[in-house]
């Protein structure tokens, strides 16, 4: 007897058929099965977020007082008035915009070239080369962020770094061009993520379309401009939105290791400011308000990029 038929049968028997009706039992079973997942989600997702929101309206700074007292909007007022917060948000927005732009541009270019190589490779050597190249791009992404940041710090060290040695300069990259250097280090790490998603998107385009375009006399650039690009716009938008949210809310390790937020506050990105406010200053009320702002800004950022996708002609 199929499940559907069982259900139908139970319905026909009515409430008198047992202590619980079949439908009721199915509902309770469903609830029972989802309960662990719900409890998990509540404990590790809902409760922490709710607690952050709660703390953002309270004064909780244990070095001043062990008590948590209601503070109204004072933490948010501080966020709105603080020069450091405004500067940090600005630095993070610049970082996010430039970093994501670089990642998308290089990721798209490399994905298109690699796709071309993979599709066009007729010989075993060519296929091997394309696979080798493709695999090599996973390395930065697979490298732990801190290890990657240390490597960049060593590469760009003004005294002992190979970059200055090759260029025969003594530029202190992280001191003289701090934000640009941090952006390059971060883009190196996260660009492969963009590359692989776009590569998969390009490969999913029907080959017939390319054949048709070639019959119509389109060159490679025209193929890319009028066929590849429009076909992957939805993926591009989602990837850009994802990276933007990720860059805004999670840029921490690279900055922490390479510049520590300096010189001065030049690279004090928002997550670093939140961390400092919480764990250096032990002001958890203000840190929570900052965290809520970060969530709101990143949500707005993501939503606006996805909205662009919806109104795009593709």
């Amino acid at each position: 007897m199929s499940f559907k038929r069982q259900v139908r049968g139970s319905r026909s028997r009515g409430p008198a058929a047992g202590f619980l009706t079949w439908n009721r039992r199915v509902q309770l079973t469903g609830l029972g099965l989802t309960l662990p997942a719900l409890a998990f989600a509540f404990a590790f997702m809902v409760y922490p977020v709710a607690n952050v929101v709660f703390l953002s309206f309270h004064q909780y700074s244990p070095l001043r007082s062990a008590d948590t007292t209601y503070a109204g909007l004072s933490n948010y007022t501080w966020v709105a008035r603080s020069d450091i917060v405004a500067h940090s948000i600005w630095v993070t927005i610049v970082f996010t915009a430039v970093s994501v732009a670089i990642e998308m541009a290089t990721g798209l270019t490399l994905a298109a070239l690699l796709a071309e190589l993979v599709v066009e490779s007729r010989h075993a050597f060519g296929r091997m080369l394309s696979r080798g190249l493709l695999s090599s791009f996973i390395l930065p992404f697979a490298t732990p962020a801190v290890a990657g940041a240390i490597a960049w710090k060593m590469l760009l060290h003004p005294q002992f770094g190979p970059v200055d040695a090759i260029l025969r300069t003594d530029i202190a990259w992280f001191a003289q061009f701090p934000l640009a250097s941090v952006i390059v280090a971060d883009a190196w790490k996260t660009m492969p993520f963009v590359l692989f998603l776009l590569f998969a998107a390009i490969l999913s385009i029907e080959p017939d379309q390319y054949e048709a375009s070639r019959l119509d006399g389109a060159n490679r650039w025209q193929e890319f401009r009028y066929l590849t690009l429009p076909s992957i716009v939805p993926v591009l938008a989602v990837v850009a939105a994802f990276r933007a949210v990720d860059a805004f809310t999670k840029i921490f390790d690279v900055v922490f290791v390479t510049t520590g937020g300096g010189p001065g506050n030049d690279t004090q990105v928002f997550p670093l400011l939140i961390w400092r406010t919480a764990f250096d200053f032990l002001n958890f009320g203000q840190a929570s308000a900052l965290a809520v702002v970060a969530v709101l800004v990143s949500a707005a950022l993501g939503a606006s990029l996805l909205a662009i996708r919806r109104i795009s002609p593709a």
Binding site: H157, P158, Q159, D170, I171, A172, W173, F174, A175, P178, T258, T259, G260, G262, P263
Partner: peptide, 9 residues
């Protein structure tokens, strides 16, 4: 100080 000291410890 040597160049780059601003981001060193």
């Amino acid at each position: 100080n040597p160049p780059g000291w601003q981001t060193e410890n």
